[in-house]
Design a binder for these strands. Structure first.
Lengths: 197, 197
DNA sequence: GAACTGGTGGGACGATCGTCCCACCAGTTC
DNA sequence: GAACTGGTGGGACGATCGTCCCACCAGTTC
């Protein structure tokens, strides 16, 4: 193994990670060769050495980041699909975590969405988690329509959580998540309850 | 009325409209004093005359745009809440329209979301339509949890529609929208159906 | 019609940007 | 150890950026 190549590969990775940190902190707008180089502690020319253009750097970073996140999230959802009665709380806690502790990460993800809306080549990366989950859930899923609604609502809850004055709590989100996962149970409970429709 | 002021007000408005066109076409990243001035057909200095900084221009544009959109959308949803059995199709068509014919407009709206996630002063504008609808729907709404799920899913369907390879059709979305609006009916139909759970 | 004032628009400033050039270093190959 | 090669990093280029200065125009006020 060529030691030069190995160190090069490490530096390339360091640049990707630095770029993601810049995006989390300042958004895609804050990414420039110089800002990334400063963050990574490398000379300005390194970023052009490893990535043909700033655009390439941005795309590489967002794809890499989306890949990490997709595997991360889909694990959670697949587990849920396999055992829907197990733990609504786990999903809710994960969502809260994404708009609170991992807020920067989630914003970066939606920066990617928006970029992908304008650039077709980024769309597969942006849809990665949706595709993974949909594929994994297919054999277990008896109600694809309700499942699509659930996936859409997850995106919406996250986006709306990002623009709330303060991040929603588990108690805020749990009823909604529970309804989305077990709608029948929710509706039955409501019917036996008060107002009705 | 001072004719100078009147013309000034018109030019101010023209700058706002030009800025929105630039955002729709190239995103927030494409907005600069020069690009907006070129789009509006005014000298570069006009934009700084009417807006103290580029940031002010951006914020003013997004707030104005969000206001327009909020009233537009909330009309539709309020009508729906008042008569839920009337026309699921109207809502679906509106959603399809937002990711197809009015795609640029919708992307601009989500640029605002993302900016608002980073800047608290923009959040009221970004939440405008959510707040309007929630307020208007309150007296008629017997299931706030399902309603929140519906609103989240609308955001998610729009975002996911923007990153689809081609915009979803009415036929694609109608089942999901129908389920979100009349979940009980959907579930009952499913139970009498095939696989069941 | 003179003084005032809201708006106009050309031109410039320093800063930052993406990108490239090029001399050089440090491992690798033979 | 000489030739090669992957990577390094300082420095510069033209372009574009936000913002400001300032002479001026055109309605308004008296």
């Amino acid at each position: 193994m060529d030691g030069r190549r190995a160190r090069g590969e490490r530096r390339r990775q360091a640049i990707l990670e630095a770029t993601l940190r810049v995006i989390e902190r300042d958004g895609v707008a804050g990414v420039s060769h110089r800002s990334v180089a400063r963050e990574a502690g490398v000379p300005t020319t390194s970023t052009t050495y490893y990535f043909a253009s700033l655009d390439d750097l941005l795309i590489a970073t967002l794809m890499w980041s989306a890949d990490k996140l997709a595997e991360d999230i889909s694990d959670l959802i697949v587990r849920l699909v396999n055992a829907p009665n197990s733990d609504v709380g786990a999903v809710t806690r994960r969502l809260v975590d994404m708009v609170d502790a991992n807020r920067g990460r989630t914003m970066a993800e939606y920066e990617l969405y928006l970029l992908a809306a304008r650039r077709p080549e980024l769309r597969p990366a942006a849809r990665r988690w949706l595709d993974l989950i949909t594929e994994a859930a297919r054999p277990f899923d008896s109600d694809p329509v309700a499942f699509r609604a659930f996936l859409a609502a997850v995106d919406g809850l996250l986006m709306q959580g990002l623009i709330a004055d303060e991040p929603p709590s588990v108690a805020d989100l749990e009823p909604v998540v529970s309804y989305l996962i077990r709608p029948r149970q929710h509706l039955d409970r409501l019917q036996g309850g008060t107002i009705g429709e």
